[in-house]
C-alpha cells in the first residue's frame, strides 16, 4: 500500500522556457534541482520529493508537479 501520495510526485521543468535564473535551486531543501550549464534547470528524479517549493518560486512558472 502507498504510504505517502506525495512520494509519487516529482517536479518537471519545461526546459525550453527556462531562463536559468536558479531561483528554484535556491529554495529546494534537498538540492534536487540544479541549473545545468547555465542553460536550464534539471531535476534529479532520485532526490526530488515533490514538495513543490520550486514550483511556487519559479518566476517563469514553468515547473510542474506530476505524478510519476
Amino acid at each position: 500500500m502507498e504510504t505517502n501520495i506525495r512520494k509519487k510526485r516529482k517536479a518537471f521543468v519545461m526546459e525550453q522556457d527556462c531562463v536559468a535564473c536558479g531561483c528554484c535551486m535556491k529554495v529546494c531543501p534537498l538540492g534536487a534541482i540544479k541549473v545545468h550549464k547555465g542553460i536550464m534547470a534539471k531535476v534529479n528524479m532520485e532526490q526530488c520529493v515533490g514538495c513543490g517549493k520550486c514550483v511556487k518560486e519559479c518566476p517563469a512558472s514553468i515547473i510542474e508537479l506530476k505524478e510519476v
Binding site: 536559468a20 550549464k37 547555465g38
Partner: peptide, 28 residues
C-alpha cells in the same frame, strides 16, 4: 507578478544564458 519576475526578462540574465548556450552547445 512573482518576486523575481525581473529575472525572466533581465537583460543580464538573458545575455549570460545566451553565452552559456553558445559555449556549451544548445541541445542536451
Amino acid at each position: 507578478f512573482k518576486p523575481r519576475s525581473w529575472c525572466v526578462y533581465c537583460p543580464m540574465g538573458t545575455m549570460t544564458q545566451l553565452i552559456c548556450k553558445a559555449k556549451n552547445g544548445k541541445s542536451d
